[in-house]
Design a binder for these strands. Structure first.
Lengths: 265, 265
DNA sequence: CGTCTGGTTCCATGATGTGGAACTCGACTT
DNA sequence: AAGTCGAGTTCCACATCATGGAACCAGACG
């Protein structure tokens, strides 16, 4: 009856008296994380439960509106998820999901951390974790700045989350890149390196570094980055750039569609 | 041990061997539908489960990321819901939720049914169920029309989902209302009656009727309506208006936050 | 320092979920 | 038309697992 070792299945946080629920939740999580219709068999061997059990659980989950079957009979997230999604803005939810990542970056670097997305043709900061230093950047959530001179803006430009505006590029400081060709060259480099940076280009003495966050389909949907005084950051550009890329990659992994063989969180 | 009559609990579709899951799902559904933090006790007496059971189930649901506790210890929807919401557009999900309602309206009236929302300062149709008549309106999903001469537009204007544009009101047909004062008077009437209509105001021979859909907080977030040839609809304005209001009310009920005493769907 | 409300842990009990095997259904072959 | 296979559901004896009353714990209030 025991499928494998009796006590290996759920290791952490000691679960007792909840086998059925753990399994049901595993099914739901698998469907939601995959984010594409999974057939009965997919779920059967993805989750490693006996056919009869799988069937019973899935039927119950469907009845309770946690899952639903599409026309082809495959399972997708059910009405409860639709309801939640209609009521909540997707960017707010991205912030929730990203919060732990931002905080880790904050702890690692000590600098102010930002998360940006494109809204229309503008870059807006949607979340911020403050610097541990006294000298940090102010809270500019919802403040939007020209894309071509902010690190997060450059990331979004470089990965196609945003198009480079056709007209003049505003000269915000003496260091701002205003030449289209030069900007394009930089953007190509951003893609090559996996992170973007601006030193004194948005404001004298302000340095920013950013990396791309990818959505479920692999498209770049947001950018994470840190910013702070140039003297403190200038020398750590590459170090922090790599760190950001790592962390952003992890966050992207969370958002990525997963089909096969993913350990239980 | 049996709380009530042994076979009364879950009547439809015969459930067997899934008590634990049904209960767990009930908890999740309650939290998601309420859409505001529910304390342990709220859930306890909302769902009528023994304390110990409630506790065990909630702990399991939290571990599996279906629920989460906020700072105050109350339960809210968990990371799995966030993930789903980040990946899906909220208007698309509204369409999913509304589809059954639209289809019922279509079946009731035989006319083309539309669902509209405001995007920025424009009204866009986001879903359509086609007329059973041959003479119906074409698919204008994503086509946006001036708000002051469409029934759904008037609904959104009337309930504050949209502001009346300050400038000239475009005269689309001879019947189009172009006078601001007259429009305001109509909008007030719309609120009084609970539905809006346009006869020949957008296109000669085209009549539309619409009613408001309210979101979780009670604000009007969308409008449902039917449209078709004036000869067929003109006489049924009030009848259909009431019908739409009823159906829209039902849909709104689905979206409304619910805190207490709601039967299991 | 006692008293409550709010919540978790224990544990004996048997109801409840389990899973192998039998069965059904439909599609595809021969 | 009969035969075969794969996908999925239903059955049912068994014992594992969820159950819930009671005891327990912790913090807030008086």
């Amino acid at each position: 009856m025991a499928r494998m070792d009796p006590q290996v299945s759920s290791s952490l946080t000691a679960s007792t008296g909840t086998q059925a629920i753990d399994r049901a939740a595993l099914l739901v999580a698998t469907v939601v994380r995959a984010d594409e219709p999974l057939s009965f068999l997919d779920l059967h061997d993805e989750c490693g439960l006996p056919k009869s059990t799988t069937s019973r659980l899935l039927t119950a989950l469907e009845r309770t509106e946690l899952l639903e079957r599409n026309a082809a009979g495959s399972y997708v997230a059910g009405p409860l998820f639709w309801l939640y999604a209609t009521r909540h803005d997707q960017w707010d939810e991205l912030v929730r999901l990203a919060r732990p990542t931002l905080e880790r970056i904050g702890a690692d670097t000590g600098e102010t951390v930002n998360l940006s997305v494109t809204r229309g043709d503008r870059v807006v900061q949607v979340a911020q974790v403050d610097s541990t230093y006294l000298l940090g950047t102010r809270d500019w959530t919802e403040v939007d700045v020209p894309a071509h001179c902010s690190a997060l803006g450059k990331v979004l430009l470089a990965y196609g989350g945003l198009a480079v505006p056709p007209g003049e590029l505003e000269q915000v400081t003496p260091s701002t890149i205003t030449d289209h060709a030069a900007l394009e060259r930089q953007l190509a480099q951003v893609v090559r390196r996996g992170y973007a940076s601006t030193v004194d280009e948005l404001e004298i003495g302000l340095t920013g570094i950013g990396a791309p966050v990818r959505g479920s389909g692999g498209e770049v949907i947001a950018a994470v980055g840190v910013s702070g005084p140039s003297p403190r950051l200038e020398r750590r550009l590459d170090e922090i750039g790599r760190l950001l890329n790592d962390r952003a990659e992890q966050l992207s992994g969370l958002l990525r569609r997963r089909t096969r063989k993913e350990g239980v969180a």
